[in-house]
Every structure is written in C-alpha cells, then in structure tokens.
Amino acid sequence: MTSGTADTLLLNSIFSAALERKATDVHLMAGNYPVFRLNDKLYAFTDAKILTVDTINTLVEGWLTEAERARLVSDKEVRAAYVWANRARFRATIFYQQGYPAISLRMIPAELPTAKELQIPDILVSATAHRQGLIFICGPFNSGRTTTVASLLQHINTNRSKRIISLERPIEYILVNSASMINQREIGKDTPSFIQGLRDIIDDDVDVVAISELQEEGIQEAVLELAESGKLVIAVLNATSTISALESFLASIAKERRPWAKDVIGELMHIMVAQRLVPAVGGGRVLACEILLRSAAVTSIIQEDKFGQLHSVLQTSREEGMIGLDYRLSELVRAGKVSGEVAKKFALDPTNIRG
C-alpha cells in the first residue's frame, strides 16, 4: 500500500467517525491521536493510529493551493475550506506548533440553519431590512459569527431583491441565488485583499456587503466609507463584548479621522451584537447575545469617549432591546437551558450570573 493510499484511508476513517459521532471539530497534530470535540468536550479517537509529521505534511500539501502554502510559510497560519469526499465541508486552520504543522477543522453544517433555528434575536434579523448602515457581529473565535452572518445573508436572499457581495477568508457556506443575487469572493483567490475588495465595491451596483474579518490596516475606515456610500454593511469583529469592540474599532482609525468615524457610527450603526455559543443542558449549544443599539445616549457616549458608561446603558435599556451578555446568560440559567457553572465560564464577569 502506498503512503498516499494509507493517508487517504486514515483520513476517511477519521472523518467518517467524526460525522457518525456528530463532532463539531477535529484536531490533527503529529505525535497524537486525532481529537474530536463532542458537546464541548475533547475526546481522543484511539481507533485511528497516532499521527506522524509525514502524514500531516502530506495533508497540508494536498489541501492547500500554492498561494496558501506560501502564506503558511510567511504567516505561520492559514485558513482554508476543505471538502471531504463530497460528504462534508470543513473550515481548516493550519498552523505551526513546536516547529511542525498542525490542523484544526471546524465542521460546516451541510445545510445552513435559518435565523430562527439558530435563535438569532429578532431585532438583529430586522436590522437587515435597512437599505444603508452598519451591522457588527462580534465574538471570540468559534462563537458562531460566520454562521450568524451567513444566516442573515440568506434571510435577505430569501426575502428581498438585493445584490449581495461577501468578502470571506475562507468561504464556508455556499449561498445560492434566490430573490437576491449573491457573489461570494474569497480573499487570495478572487481578490488579493479585503481592502482591495472593498475598493472594488464602493462604486459598484451593490446593496449589501458582508466582511468576514477586519484585520487589515486601514480596513475600518474603508468599512465606514462603504456604509457612507449607501450600502448596508455587515462586518465581523474579533472582540469579547460590544464595548471592547467599539473601543478597538475606533482605536484602529487614525486620530485625525476619529471624529468623522464617531459621526458615521453615530448616524449609521444600527446594531452591534457580541455572541457566544454556550453548551446547553442536555447537549447541544445555545446562542447567547449581547445587544447594543444606536440611541442618543450611545451616540453621546461614543462622541465623548466614555465607553465605560455603556455598561449602564446595556443594563437600563432593555425595553429598547438592548441587553448585556451576563444578563442574557442569567436568563438562560433561569430558563433551565444553561447551567450556572457553564454560564460563569462564558460571562464577562462571573459574579454577575444569577440563577
């Protein structure tokens, strides 16, 4: 049996078992058994053999394009979509640890769940009806941000006649035209960078733009300019809370342009959501969202750089639809959907959790 055939058979056994056991993640690292994440716990798949460096290297070589391999060498980490035997689609993160490549794979559901199935707050879904403005989806890695954005785009696609463009790295969910027209552009394949992709869009006939990350220098200003041009922009931010997201976003903008940025956010931001996927009682996961809306109080606080006061706004503006993450987690505990112990692990301040 050739090495390539042996690696293929090994991979087939790993992914078959992952699908059968409904794993959400698969981790492959040399010197270890494959590891599955099931219901937020890690389990070694000891039915397979211990992985070798050669096996991991073979997988990396076979999965990545030449450009992606070059980026792995320069950046030491790369994300790509991987389709296994037309049976499953994964978001693959390939990185180095102890000098050798390792692979983490997140299972992408075969069918995109609806906003209702994901329990996305109605107020967030309703925000997609605006013709122009800003919608921010925040959270740490693996908090479900990509799925939330894809579900919002599909909601627009199903219910409105719009031209939608997404800039993604990688493309995880494949969306098909319905009432709308969707173009999904992958960074590195369809456009060289997020910045270039936004520049190409700003004067184009586009209604809705989704951006999967805001890591490139200058992209924050480009996002605001895009919203100013009359488009609805849905952007993903890597932040634990809405407050830290706002602070970080504005801090990334040149000081002399910050007053302009505050004006744009104060005028065009409809909603900012910080989310978590929390292990539920009895298995599965439940979505918990912090929700910050544009209001006169929020706009004033942003203008005056008094971001700490937003904690009070989140606590006192629930009738308007705002809610803090810890309060929402406490609601889930009281409803019996999440245990108090688990809620505290996901809270911004565990002492805020009340059963």
Rank of each mutant, 00 (worst) to 15 (best):
F90Y: 12
T8K: 15
L112S: 08
F307E: 02
L287E: 02
F90T: 00
P121T: 04
I123F: 07
D75H: 13
S16N: 14
A235W: 00
V35Y: 00
E267G: 07
N32L: 11
N39Y: 00
D122N: 14
S104D: 10
E221R: 15
R69E: 09
A80E: 08
M269Y: 02
W63Q: 03
K255W: 09
D349W: 06
T2K: 14
T148M: 06
G218M: 05
L325T: 01
K231R: 14
A23F: 10
L11F: 09
T240A: 11
T55F: 12
L232S: 07
V176A: 07
L124F: 08
L325C: 06
L293C: 07
L124Q: 03
L237V: 05
T351W: 02
E66C: 07
T65G: 10
I103R: 05
L152I: 04
L226G: 00
V83E: 11
G308T: 10
W63V: 11
V125R: 13
L72K: 12
F346T: 08
R79I: 06
D40A: 15
E61T: 06
K116I: 08
A239K: 05
I201R: 00
R328M: 11
A30V: 03
L153P: 02
T114K: 14
L268H: 04
R145D: 00
D305K: 13
A18V: 13
T52F: 10
S126N: 14
G133E: 12
R87L: 08
K49N: 12
I323V: 15
E216H: 03
D263M: 11
R89M: 01
Q196D: 01
L11D: 03
T114E: 12
S180G: 06
Y100A: 09
S143E: 04
Q98K: 15
S16G: 07
L105R: 05
T55L: 05
A254E: 15
G355W: 09
G31S: 13
I187L: 02
A81K: 15
F15E: 07
G324A: 15
L237H: 11
Y173G: 04
N238F: 07
S212K: 03
S151F: 03
E290D: 06
T191A: 01
A239M: 13
D40F: 06
A280I: 04
K189H: 10
L167H: 09
G133V: 08
A110W: 04
K22C: 07
P34A: 04
Y82I: 13
L118F: 09
R294I: 02
H311C: 12
E216T: 11
G340I: 02
V60Y: 00
Q97I: 09
R257Y: 05
I265D: 05
A67Y: 01
H270P: 12
I120C: 12
E304C: 00
T147M: 12
S212M: 04
E247P: 01
L9W: 00
D47R: 13
Y43L: 09
G99S: 11
D47E: 14
H270Q: 14
V209R: 00
G282Q: 10
L59K: 08
L268G: 04
F346M: 09
I174L: 15
F194S: 03
G308C: 07
P109V: 06
M1C: 08
S295W: 01
D263P: 02
L42A: 05
T55P: 01
V223N: 08
R145T: 10
R131G: 10
